[in-house]
């Protein structure tokens, strides 16, 4: 059996976690620490920043300097940390509501600045912690406590949003594709710029039960059956794409990273302007 070397990255005295049985957040959290290990990030120079919600409780379990911020605000805090000390590796953990609703403006502007953050969105398509309200990523016609007849609000595709806003790296994976998810995050960590990884995770309690998928294993099978690797997706006829979604790396574009851009401002200012 493979040695569970990643376990050293957890605060054992803070476990077990508060997530429900069958929740996918733990899979994504583990993928992050495995990616950290793969990339050999120095632990004391790696900061985990999270927002508010189920996803964002992850920071408390991870043995780094960790920051559990306010709802939607993880990216501004993370931006401040990175700008204050560019040698730090900053990983943001956020949720679909945290990132694309209350934190939506910070998200697009983080991507626009292309600051070197690795943002991992745990997408369970619902507000889980507060009992199952619709988020901006709840699929059309799916039920939530605040969408009892099915959601009529069109959902965001957070990957398209990140790409359009200027992120350097954009990828998606699922809790079923564990190794793939780790690889996607690891590549994001290596990217010098704003890296965004959407991880599709199951929420059997708040989402599954309302949408005829109460069994977490069934939810993961749904991921297996409907996630399509990017290369295959690109060759797929449109009529077969219904209900399916692509995973993989969607976008790589190495633009100037923000702290590097600002270091030039410092040089200019110290040379006396102009």
């Amino acid at each position: 059996m493979k040695e569970r070397t990643y376990e050293k990255y957890f605060r054992q005295n803070r476990l077990p976690h508060i997530w429900c049985p069958g929740c996918g957040n733990g899979i994504a959290m583990k993928a992050i620490v495995q990616a950290v290990e793969m990339r050999g990030l120095p632990r004391d120079k790696t900061i985990i920043v999270s927002g508010i919600g189920c996803s964002s409780r992850a920071s408390g379990y991870m043995d780094f300097d960790t920051l559990h911020t306010a709802h939607g605000r993880a990216i501004p805090f993370a931006t401040g940390i990175k700008l204050a000390n560019p040698e730090l590796n900053v990983i943001v953990i956020t949720g679909d509501g945290d990132c694309t609703a209350i934190g939506g403006n910070h998200f697009i502007h983080g991507a626009r600045r292309n600051i070197d953050l690795t943002v991992v969105l745990f997408n369970n398509t619902i507000y889980g912690m507060t009992g199952g309200q619709a988020s901006p990523m709840t699929p059309l016609h799916k039920k939530a406590t605040t969408a009892p007849y099915g959601s009529v609000d069109r959902p965001f595709d957070a990957c398209n949003l990140a790409q359009a806003a200027g992120a350097s790296y954009v990828a998606r994976s699922t809790a079923f594709h564990v190794q793939h998810m780790t690889d996607m995050i690891a590549e994001g960590i290596s990217c010098r710029g704003f890296a965004f990884i959407e991880t599709v995770v199951q929420c059997p309690t708040a989402y599954g039960r309302k949408n005829k998928m109460p069994d977490p294993a069934e939810m993961m099978k749904w991921m297996r059956d409907n996630a399509v690797m990017k290369t295959a997706w690109d060759r797929m006829p449109e009529e077969k794409k219904a209900d399916k979604f692509p995973i993989g790396v969607f976008h790589r574009h190495q633009a100037v990273e923000y702290t590097e851009a600002y270091s030039e401002v410092i040089t200019l200012a110290q040379e006396g302007g102009k």
Binding site: I47, V49, P76, G80, I81, A84, L88, H106
Partner: peptide
């Protein structure tokens, strides 16, 4: 965001 970014920088 202006408030969040200074808090992050302060922590760093």
């Amino acid at each position: 965001g202006g408030m969040g970014v200074v808090l992050g920088a302060s922590l760093a």
